[in-house]
Design a protein around this nucleic acid. Structure first.
Lengths: 238, 238
DNA sequence: CTTCCATTAATGTCTATACATTAAAAGTCT
DNA sequence: AGACTTTTAATGTATAGACATTAATGGAAG
């Protein structure tokens, strides 16, 4: 693959920094020095360094110069693939079986329902089971705001999973995901053919579109069938 | 705060896209149109749009134009704060009690140890309990490569947690985190004063520095005391 | 109707230059 | 020495133009 000049400059420093050859706090050459070193214009150097700034690898201060930043450990990127997509990638056959589908009034004593309905709007409730190769692996309890997503009322969710349909049809702007562990309830255990109390990974997510609540979903995964992997490293772009 | 011109252009489109005013698939004006609209040069427009590309908000194709990208739900930003830091933020008192500290040869039948030791290097094993307000909330099993981090052998880990010390002293370049659910083993249940099989959130992490393995850690959290929250939204930069 | 080719409209890269802004560093005056 | 001012070296922003690259499009040939 042919790299353009500013990409070459960027990756050169990326490699140096990520390999530790340039340590946090080290000073980089000035733009003037780099334009001589690479025999190019200052704008080209600047473009490369700007990219490194927005990637968080370097800090720049006027008059002082350019420095390798100290690593920030706080946030990592977490890969949460679509369940059907992930399973088929791994060669499994995914299926979704609706278990309960209905439109109803919210129970505002339940915090998620109060949030989603804003106290009054009807909710579309979609409960179902995810199967991998005919083996149940997850129970999904989903609520959709009938007011924010009226078109969802006409969809046949035995043909497409609620998650995939929402993804393709309702762009969201904000999402909050909570990850925890829990034991299976009696109902869940029954449907998944496990014993109550079996440890499971529980993912709850709320999704907004510009301050309108869209959906709340709680997914319970059998722990031996699913886990999340997040990787943080050099491969920031591609 | 005064925005420079390319920042204004960028944030204008950022707002449009994140609010849904411009939906995925919509076509944006060409660079030529934008340079007239904002009365500026093409490079300025280009800088703004390039930033949006690397933020993943738009896609650009030669001859065809610029389009709002379909949302990728794949990656979210997950905040995994330092345990002591997070607890003290919430007003709790954190403590760490070492339970087992020793240097030993790896057991290469165990996959993480084979990886960390590269088959032969000695390992520093640090097992301990995390407490919040004197209540045990997590069991931590950590291995550190004695070859990659020789200085760790001289540290007193009853004064600082292994995680905090590593964070401050050993810059890493890559990390892989696996999140799953599990039931407590007998030993773990004993130390945490719970029943075996209690559902727990399990976080495993491997950390590299430029292809040298640094550390492997497995943390088991009581599910009622800890969960992870990830939020994805407009605040991409700042 | 299909295949192939030339056109062309869009993005991608790069240059050379200019001026603005900031903060470190050096100089000046008590 | 300490407080203030000036210089200056670095980054930050922006311009106008040039050429490269790509792929959608439309037209010509079969």
């Amino acid at each position: 693959m042919k790299l353009s000049l500013h990409e070459k400059i960027r990756t050169d420093f990326e490699d140096d920094i990520l390999s530790g050859r340039r340590a946090p706090g080290d000073r980089l050459p000035t733009e003037k020095e780099l334009m001589e070193q690479y025999d190019c214009s200052r704008m080209t150097v600047n473009k490369a360094l700007s990219a490194l700034v927005s990637a968080g690898l370097i800090d720049r201060r006027k008059k002082a110069g350019t420095f390798v930043s100290s690593p920030r450990v706080h946030s990592m990127i977490l890969d949460i693939p679509d369940l059907p997509a992930q399973l088929s990638e791994q060669g499994h056959i995914h299926a979704y079986t609706p278990h309960l589908t209905r439109v109803r009034a919210p129970d505002t004593r339940m915090e998620p329902e109060a949030w989603l309905s804003k106290g009054a709007d009807d909710l579309l409730q979609l409960d179902g089971i995810h199967l991998a190769d005919d083996r149940p692996i997850a129970y999904e309890h989903r609520l959709i705001s009938a007011r924010s997503v009226p078109s969802a009322l006409d969809v046949d969710f035995s043909a497409i999973t609620p998650g995939s349909w929402l993804l393709q049809n309702v762009p969201w702007t904000e999402a909050e995901t909570k990850i925890s562990a829990c034991g299976l309830s009696g109902l869940e255990a029954d449907l998944l053919k496990q014993k109550p109390g079996t440890p499971c990974l529980c993912i709850e997510r709320r999704t907004w579109r510009a301050s309108d609540p869209i959906t709340y979903v709680r997914q319970v995964f059998l722990s031996d069938a699913y886990d999340l992997v997040a990787r943080f490293g050099p491969t920031s772009s591609s």
